[in-house]
Computed example of a mutant assay.
Amino acid sequence: MKKILGICLFILLQSCDSELHGLEKPENLIPKDQMITLMTDMLILEGHIQTTYSTVNRYYKVMTASGRDYLKSKHITEKQYEDSFMYYTSMHEEYKLMLDKVMENLQKESIELQKKT
């Protein structure tokens, strides 16, 4: 869970880049609720891969392929995800609220997993 929080903090800090202000809304923008779900699932996927593979090289390759496959299963292109991600990160307050929702989703998932064990 600490790793996931660290990743979220890193993403939040990256979004504070002044060059990102004022990005235009992409035509292929993923709706906010769907983007929150995608971000939650991608962090869960990354957490699983990170604990499974110890070397960075292998981790990177598996995460890239798995992330690509996950997006494809949701009928979303990598470009659409990246464009949407960049757009949302340029809107600092809204993005912070999105991250709060992602963290809430992760906490719910954690509670559900604990109940099953």
Rank of each mutant, 00 (worst) to 15 (best):
E19F: 12
G22A: 00
H92K: 15
T51N: 14
L43E: 00
M98H: 02
T37F: 10
M1A: 11
K61R: 13
E104L: 03
Q34C: 03
C16K: 14
Q34S: 06
Y60M: 13
L29Y: 02
L12Y: 12
Q107E: 14
G6C: 07
E27W: 03
Y60Q: 14
L9R: 07
Y88G: 08
N57F: 09
I76A: 03
E93N: 13
Y95M: 04
D83I: 00
I49K: 09
C8S: 06
I49W: 03
K72C: 02
P26R: 05
L97G: 09
L97P: 06
S110T: 14
S54I: 04
T55I: 08
E82Y: 01
L106F: 02
Y81G: 07
H92Y: 05
H48C: 00
K116Q: 13
K61T: 06
T89F: 04
T117R: 15
G22Q: 01
M39N: 03
K108V: 11
T51V: 06
E112L: 14
E24V: 09
D83Q: 03
L12H: 00
I76P: 03
E94K: 05
F10K: 14
C16P: 07
M63I: 08
S15L: 01
T77K: 03
H75A: 12
M63T: 06
I44E: 15
D17W: 02
Y53W: 09
